[in-house]
Write a protein that binds this DNA or RNA. Structure first.
Length: 466
RNA sequence: GGCGGCAUGGCCAAGCGGUCUAAGGCGAAGGUCUGCAAAACCUUUAUUCGUCAGUUCGAAUCUGACUGCCGCCUCCA
């Protein structure tokens, strides 16, 4: 299993610190708004990575943090004239709802900054003790120069940063790139006690503190969006490793952006759709297939047309599942079908083992469907065992790892509707027998208008409610 | 200015030195089925991989230059 590691800029063989167990920490959202479909991409891809690691037998300990105290939350609270707590609570709730709708599996833990103040303060205190941080009037800054490895993740050098910097120079700091660990409370701001007075944690501290608290000083995988490489993840490394002297995370993974017309989708640019909005019109499976068809590390252009493309592709998979389920219900016995299921499992693993190559993996699913269709068409007697193996393959790969299909959900229809449609089909069949095509077509057209699609075949007419 | 990424068919997108006259999806065209349809299924759809050099027996894949995009350096998945 190979993973591209941002730290070494290479694909590396993945070997967890402790055999059989993988600790994985993913940077989650700041809960000041609904998350957008670009955020959703990271969350979904992280979910697929987690699921695949479980698929190959690892016990994955998975955390995604929620930043629930931050400038943005405070600003939002001021705008809406409510308590910042309320803001965080509301969007935390929304976050849980949305990731559930996206089919994202529950994390083992969603650590929150406000629930880890002791650890955060403790971490900052250690940094101050060790000389990696300094307190100026209740603001504590990290002394960037004190950490030799600063820049090792992002490839940036402190002296080179200066040239293009547009950071407002804070004269209090020793170095303009020193970053805030603890922010002194302003009036009417939520605050916590600390050795430096009332305040709240700065941007990056929570992730270090929480990751170490829950998973120990060194974790296996730390992941997040591309834009977190610098400064967020760089700073996490500086904070954590300065304190522990140990490697903070062994594999750093970063997700490419979702772009709107060549431009990064982001809240600050205002060019975004919330995941919620998209979920109103598209299923989680469609969205997940859409994401899976591009490698997680590259950019992905978002448009509704592209999403529709994935929707069409998914219909193909669902039709196939329909067919398999129908056939499976009516067939019996074993068949002699020679079909190499193992090779498809292997191809799927090969793809995923190569730095989670989901586009390749989805291609394997489509190849599998084509080959299985062919086998069915070319075989006289297809037995039940074949169909159940097909379903097993899809269950293990497309459903459990990629989450692009829900085998249970396909073909769930209400019985009353079914009975009524069947009644109409009987009438139509009589009309057809009498060659009264005007009437039979009228029935068909009206049903089509209602979203009920008819399919005539030798065995009779079947239908599908769209 | 510094650092990083990308450029493959009408569109999206794999590919990591030979099996590439390049996977898969969408779209399109033809076929099977049908009273006609629709749906489904089957088949076809890049001798070519931004441009120009180079390395190599061999390059979409490595190197260099060039062109064009994008991101980070500032809160951001």
């Amino acid at each position: 299993m190979q993973i591209y590691n941002t730290l070494t800029k290479k694909k590396e063989e993945f070997v967890p610190l402790n055999p059989g167990v993988v600790t994985m920490y993913v940077c989650g959202p700041t809960v000041y708004d609904f998350f957008h479909i670009g955020n959703a991409r990271s969350f979904v891809m992280a979910d697929i990575i987690r699921r695949y690691l479980e698929y190959i037998g690892y016990n994955v300990r998975y955390a995604m943090n929620l930043t629930d105290i931050d400038d943005k939350i405070i600003n939002k609270a001021n705008e809406e004239k409510i308590d910042s707590n309320e803001v965080a609570k509301k969007f935390t709730q929304a976050f849980y709802e949305d990731i559930k709708k996206l089919g994202i599996r529950e994390a083992n833990i969603h650590p929150k900054a406000t629930e880890h103040m002791d650890e955060i303060v403790g971490l900052i205190d250690s940094l101050v003790q060790k000389g990696n941080a300094y307190n100026i009037n209740g603001n504590v800054f990290y002394r960037v120069e004190s950490f030799a490895g600063y820049g090792k993740l992002s490839g940036k050098k402190i002296d080179e940063l200066e040239s293009g910097s547009r950071v407002e120079v804070n004269t209090e700091k020793e170095n303009p790139f020193d970053f805030s660990l603890w922010k002194k409370a302003k009036e009417n701001e939520p605050s916590w006690d600390s050795p430096w007075g009332k305040g709240r944690p700065g941007w990056h501290t929570e992730c270090s503190a929480m990751s170490m608290k829950h998973f120990g000083e060194t974790i296996d995988i730390h992941a997040g969006g591309n834009d977190l490489i610098f400064p967020h993840h760089e700073n996490e490394i500086a904070q954590s490793e300065a304190v522990t002297g140990k490697q903070f995370a062994r594999y750093w993974m970063h997700f490419g952006f979702l772009n709107m017309k060549e431009e990064k989708m982001s809240k600050s640019l205002g060019n975004f759709f919330t995941a919620r909005e998209i979920l109103e019109n598209y299923s989680a499976e469609t969205i997940r297939l859409f994401f899976s068809q591009t490698h997680y590390s590259g950019p992905l252009a978002f448009s509704e047309d592209l999403l529709k493309t994935s929707q069409s592709a998914l219909i193909k998979v669902e039709n196939f599942v329909d067919l398999i389920k129908e056939n499976s219900a009516t067939s019996g016995g074993d068949s002699e079908t020679t079909f190499d299921f193992e090779s498809y499992f292997r191809l799927f693993s090969d793809a995923m083992d190569n730095d989670f190559n989901t586009p390749q993996a989805t291609a394997v699913i489509f190849d599998f469907i084509k080959a299985a269709n062919k086998a069915i068409n070319e075989t006289e007697q297809v037995g039940k065992n074949f169909y159940s193996k097909v379903l097993e393959f899809l269950n293990k790969t497309a459903q459990n790892v990629l989450g692009i299909i829900d085998l249970e959900k396909v073909k769930m229809q209400k019985s009353l509707e079914n009975d009524l449609v069947k009644l109409l089909l009987d009438v139509r069949q009589k009309a057809r027998a009498e060659k009264n095509f005007a009437l039979s077509d009228e029935i068909r057209d009206k049903l089509t208008e209602l979203g009920i699609e008819l399919k005539d075949s030798k065995e009779g007419t079947t239908f599908k409610i769209k």
